[in-house]
Nucleic acid binder design. Structure first.
Length: 252
DNA sequence: ATGCCATGTTAAC
DNA sequence: TTAACCTGGCATC
């Protein structure tokens, strides 16, 4: 169940193994037409938020979104038979990557690709992210920060676990509104810093000295102060916050 | 063995 | 606002 840091991790790993090479492409499950890609040379693999783009020399780009259940399996021996539900296998003589249960796996032409990119806000894990634009979009949001940070058109790549942990490390309550440029900047800086750690570690990291721990996400008590963590539905997902370390905004 | 939920998003009500 | 998608992990039977 991947947020942006894992997509970027997949992109780096798969680019290292596949980019610049001719690949074998098959769909053991049959739900994707891999024929146009079989034997094609892959140019790049790129993550943007929670999306993955494969660019080929002589075929349309492939867009993958893992949804909540999608995953990749890697086999160092490409002769390993894929499991039956494998939507797409991309392989060289050295490795095979099997895509399982994605919510999207589709060929996109250039205009479609451009439209998808245009629908996404700045991605804290991309080198080309426009920080000023990211701050503008967050500061301009009229919904609570806990809703805005999940909106992929505001920032691309943050999911529910990062929402909980990034808001904790910046001391923001998910229901807070009107962060202003200062608050939005601090939140962006935290996203850039921690999500990069998460990408490198392959998991959410919100405390570099305890990379396996979370402050509030799915916890009963706050790891910093021990107060009972509050949880409730916000923007369709379970939000978590410490009542002490993330003071609730004044209402009314 | 079975049921439920989840690091997500879309489309249908 | 809610169901659907249809996997994996974990709690429960």
């Amino acid at each position: 169940m991947p947020e942006g840091h894992l997509l970027h991790r997949y992109a780096v790993e798969q680019a290292g193994a596949l980019a610049g090479r001719r690949v074998r492409a098959t769909s053991p499950q049959g739900r994707f037409d891999a024929d146009p890609y079989d034997g094609c040379r892959m140019r790049t693999v790129e993550a943007y938020g929670k999306h993955l783009f494969y660019v080929f020399d002589d075929a349309r780009a492939v867009h993958v979104h893992l949804g909540m259940r999608g995953l990749f399996l890697r086999y160092d021996d490409p002769a390993t038979p894929p499991r039956g539900g494998t939507r797409l296998r991309l392989a060289t003589a050295d490795a095979a990557f099997d895509l399982i249960a994605p919510s999207r796996c589709e060929a996109l032409d250039e205009p479609e690709l451009a439209a998808l990119r245009a629908s996404l806000g700045p991605d804290p894990l991309r080198d080309d992210a426009d920080e000023a634009e990211a701050v503008r979009r967050m500061a301009a949001a009229r919904v609570p920060v806990g809703a805005a940070i999940l909106d992929q058109a505001v920032w691309a790549g943050v999911g529910n676990a990062w929402r909980a942990e990034l808001l904790f490390v910046t001391g923001l309550h998910p229901a807070a509104r009107g962060l202003g440029p200062g608050g939005a900047s601090r939140l962006w800086e935290a996203a850039v810093r921690y999500m990069a750690l998460g990408r490198d570690a392959g998991q959410v990291v919100s405390d570099p000295s305890a990379p396996d721990e979370r402050w509030v996400y799915k916890r009963e008590t706050c790891r910093r102060c021990g107060a009972p963590v509050r949880s409730w539905q916000l923007a369709g997902r379970t939000a978590y916050a410490c009542p002490v370390d993330q003071p609730e905004p004044a209402t009314g």
